[in-house]
Design a binder for these strands. Structure first.
Lengths: 207, 207
DNA sequence: GGCGATATCCCTGAAATCAGCCATTTTTAA
DNA sequence: TTAAAAATGGCTGATTTCAGGGATATCGCC
């Protein structure tokens, strides 16, 4: 019997997943959790074989959750469920310890296949995700850049329309420092304006 | 017997919804559609009493779809399902002809209640949505501003990091015209920079 | 056919951003 | 504990955006 736990904050989706897994005799749902904190704890206590993890949770970012899990547990198989069809997001999640990536608009069978692949030690991608990763989009990021705490803070304030001077004042730092962060962000995202940075960060769910 | 049709591009969600509605004898699912075009057609041909409509569809924007439906059909009850918890988005959908708004993280019962309310002629909001609409956030938009085609185009190019001059060149118009559009956008969104415009537009799913 | 919305174009000056460099201190993690 | 990463601060000059005014043309819908 393969122990699966579900982490998703949408009751309707949870219902659909439970239904789907119920069609498979070899799978048993050991627990359902609607937020990251509860899910993280459950992974440690319940020791499931597989986790179906919604990437967009209310409390914790899915990518960070994957990393958290992987710190202690190298064995549990994580299947990421997400609506994000952007390559950098997909790659980032896979690099964070997930053993599979299934877009939410996939059919149920893809989830079953992802579970089976993961248990065999393979990484499963749903058709659409595989397609996205295969096509080389020029001028697009390969990965989500690593953003520091301060940089994220700066992004947030810039996105609200604050100027460099206003941000410096609010954070009690020099305008030069703020400019330095801006420049690093522009470089990390490989664009030429902060506007483009904010667009990508918002799209990727970093803000 | 109340005829319901479902429009959602996530098979798992569809499954959960079907399950939910099956628990109610007075409700019958007359059809399931995974995109806006098919759904729109079905509303005209099947003449359902209620439509459960996912706002984020691959082909058509949910708001536009509501408006489309309302052009011909004043009677059908539309329950909008969405992950958007931003007030302007919620208000906009309600103003576009929806008879109810249920966030995707709501429990199933809220959908049932939404259907019942809508059939009685009331507009139902899930608890979370009601909460969001009630709290007056200062400095936040009340509604999503009306954006013209050209303005949307400008937003797209600005968000990619193009300068006014580059945009003007690409669209074969004067830089003055581009600046004019920028200014109008900044005013419409009630902010001071295009960066803030792009943040909101991305967040609201306008790009 | 006409009205309203949309798109177009123009000017000036102040303010802000970006590109190009660099250097030091403080955290954080191995 | 020590090396790497992050945060801090600095300068100059060119480029770009923003705020404040306008005006005219064109498109779509009733």
């Amino acid at each position: 019997m393969i122990k699966v736990i579900l982490i998703d904050d949408h009751p309707i989706v949870m219902e659909g997943l439970k239904n789907l897994l119920a069609t498979r005799e070899e799978l048993t749902v050991a627990g359902c959790f609607s937020n990251g904190a509860a899910g993280l704890e459950a992974i440690q206590t319940l020791q499931p074989d597989v986790v179906l993890l919604d990437i967009n949770l209310p409390d914790i970012n899915g990518i960070d959750l994957c990393k958290q899990v992987r710190k202690n547990d190298k064995d549990v198989r994580i299947i990421a469920l997400s609506v994000h069809n952007e390559r950098p997001v997909i790659k980032n999640i896979l690099n964070s310890g997930a053993n599979g990536y299934v877009l939410k608009n996939s059919v149920g069978e893809e989830i079953i296949m992802a579970i089976n692949s993961a248990l065999k030690g393979d990484t499963y991608l749903c058709n659409a995700a595989r397609e996205i990763l295969s096509q080389i989009q020029e001028g697009e990021l390969t990965d989500i850049p690593k953003i520091t705490r301060r940089e994220k803070e700066i992004m947030g304030l810039v996105s609200k329309g604050l100027t460099t001077a206003q941000i410096a004042e609010q954070l009690f730092i020099s305008t030069h420092t703020v400019e330095s962060h801006r420049k690093n962000l522009i470089e990390k995202f490989d664009v030429t304006t902060m506007t483009a940075v904010i667009k990508l960060a918002t799209q990727y769910g970093l803000l």
